[in-house]
């Protein structure tokens, strides 16, 4: 192969045109609370896994809405379902349940 002196990397831009509405509605059907997150970051602030790994429910929800579901799953991979985030969420979201539902819906091929 010819060496052009640079490689191709996937675009890091978010492309909302790629948003999978059907899948999101499937998630929202079993987990309506995914719509009411106000991105305050309380969950991420107290996350027991977040100190050493990139774990963030807030970001995962954002990633799903920004058509990056693989990133969302990555953000929740180290979650231990300890439930600390559900204690601080000001919108009263059942965060553990939401995390399980995200994993279920978006892991399914």
């Amino acid at each position: 192969m010819v060496d052009f002196g640079f490689g191709l990397v996937p675009s890091s831009r978010m492309n909302l045109d790629l948003f999978d509405k059907e899948k999101y509605e499937e998630l929202a059907e079993i987990e309506p609370d995914v719509r009411i997150c106000m991105a305050c970051g309380s969950c991420t602030a107290v996350c027991t896994a977040g100190k050493y790994t990139r774990t963030s429910l807030r970001e995962a929800i954002e990633d799903i809405k920004n058509a990056k579901p693989e990133k969302a799953l990555e953000m929740l991979r180290a979650c231990q379902l300890c439930g600390k985030c559900s204690m601080v969420c000001p919108r009263g979201i059942n965060t553990r349940h939401l995390i399980l539902s995200i994993t279920k819906v978006y892991s399914a091929k």
Binding site: A39, C40, G41, S42, C43, T44, A45, V46, C47, G50, K51, S56, R58, E59, V88, P90
Partner: peptide, 28 residues
């Protein structure tokens, strides 16, 4: 930009706060 999630106290009376800097996407 991040809501303070919890506060604890050090022995000298100072306070440790936890939040996420949601612009930097990092717990703080």
């Amino acid at each position: 930009r991040g809501r303070v999630a919890e506060v604890s106290e050090n022995i000298d009376g100072s306070l440790v706060i936890k939040a996420e800097d949601t612009v930097a996407s990092k717990p703080l």
